[in-house]
Design a protein around this nucleic acid. Structure first.
Lengths: 75, 75
DNA sequence: GTGTGACTTGGAGTCCGTA
DNA sequence: GTACGGACTCCAAGTCACA
């Protein structure tokens, strides 16, 4: 499985745990709603800055999200 | 200090600790030598996939490099 | 509330060279 | 071995209408 697909899965998982909609996350992180959708479906590869912008609104450290991606890549 | 500048500083630090040249790191990670230079000087923002490609050649977890960026952003 | 196609703009990443 | 520049390709960033 590719990095961007795993990333999208983990992003969605965290967002849903926080009970946030794509719309709300997009608004708070100052990104577009459809872009969040693209990320979650693994259609885009986020830059480091995008990862920082997203995690800042999800009560999670950027490195922690990246660590989740690492773990799931092994599987 | 911006995320990309901090990232560049940490990337250079790790690379030099490993006693690798920009050339060698570029070759191993299948990126361009001048691009490594741009990253280290904070002129480019790496995608998540690029971070994985780089750290795979530096004996460090992607999340660990990101964590170093976080720490140094606080300062 | 989300998925998707189509689109424009900016930047990721490469290749050439010079110093 | 690295910094830096121009020119290039390709994709991420960001937006829209519609389902």
């Amino acid at each position: 499985m590719s990095i961007e697909v795993i990333f999208g899965q983990q992003l969605r998982k965290i967002r849903e745990e926080r009970k946030l909609s794509q719309e709300e996350l997009a608004f708070r992180s100052k990104l577009d709603r459809t872009y969040i959708s693209l990320l979650e479906r693994g259609k885009r590869r986020p830059t480091l800055n995008t990862i920082f912008a997203l995690t800042a609104q999800l009560d999670i450290a950027p490195s922690e999200l990246v660590r989740m991606v690492e773990k799931n890549l092994d599987i």
